[in-house]
Amino acid sequence: MRYQLELFFTALGFFTRLPVPAWVPWSPERLNHAARYFPLVGWVVGGIGAASWLALVQVFPPSIAVLLSMAVTIRATGAFHEDGWADACDGLGGGWDKAQVLAIMKDSRIGSYGTVGLLLMLLTKAAALIELSATDDAAVATALFVAHPLSRLASTSLIHTLAYVREDETAKAKPLARRLSSPELAIAAGFGVLPLALLARQEIAAVLVATIAVTWWSARYFVRRLGGYTGDLLGATQQATELAAYLAILTAWNFT
Rank of each mutant, 00 (worst) to 15 (best):
A134P: 00
G192N: 04
E6T: 15
L247I: 11
T161A: 12
G47I: 11
A186N: 08
V101Y: 02
L198A: 15
N32T: 07
A252S: 13
T211L: 00
I212G: 01
L144M: 15
Y221R: 09
L150T: 13
A147F: 11
T251K: 05
I249K: 03
D87E: 11
P39Q: 04
A71I: 09
W216V: 13
G228M: 12
G84P: 10
A79W: 08
W53P: 05
D87Y: 08
A163I: 06
G46W: 04
T115Y: 05
T161M: 13
L180G: 00
A141T: 09
I249C: 03
L54E: 09
I104H: 01
E203C: 10
L123S: 13
A76G: 11
L56E: 07
V193D: 02
L102N: 00
R2A: 13
L102K: 00
H148D: 08
L102V: 00
R225G: 10
D232S: 07
G192F: 05
G117F: 02
G49H: 07
E169P: 09
V207G: 05
V45N: 05
A197P: 02
V57I: 14
A50L: 09
A71R: 03
A86Q: 13
T241R: 04
E131V: 02
P19V: 12
L180N: 01
L198V: 08
W43P: 05
L122V: 15
G94I: 01
W96I: 05
Q202P: 00
G47K: 02
F15L: 15
E169I: 14
L68C: 08
G78Q: 06
A200G: 13
W253R: 12
L194S: 03
R17W: 14
L162G: 06
R220S: 10
A236G: 15
P25F: 05
A236M: 13
R220N: 08
F9Q: 00
P195K: 12
L198Y: 09
E29Q: 12
W253P: 03
P149V: 07
A188H: 03
V214L: 03
W23A: 12
F9R: 01
L123D: 11
G42E: 02
N254S: 14
Y113G: 04
G78E: 01
L153C: 06
I110R: 14
L158R: 04
G94D: 08
G114P: 05
S27T: 15
R178K: 12
E169S: 11
L31W: 00
W43R: 06
H160C: 02
A143D: 09
A79M: 11
G117S: 05
T77V: 02
K98V: 14
L194N: 03
L247E: 07
A55Y: 08
A99E: 15
G94Y: 00
Q239F: 08
G95Q: 07
P28Y: 08
S218W: 09
R30W: 06
A240N: 04
Q58Y: 01
A154N: 02
W217C: 07
F60I: 06
Q100M: 07
F14W: 11
S69H: 09
F80H: 10
G231H: 03
T230A: 03
F255I: 14
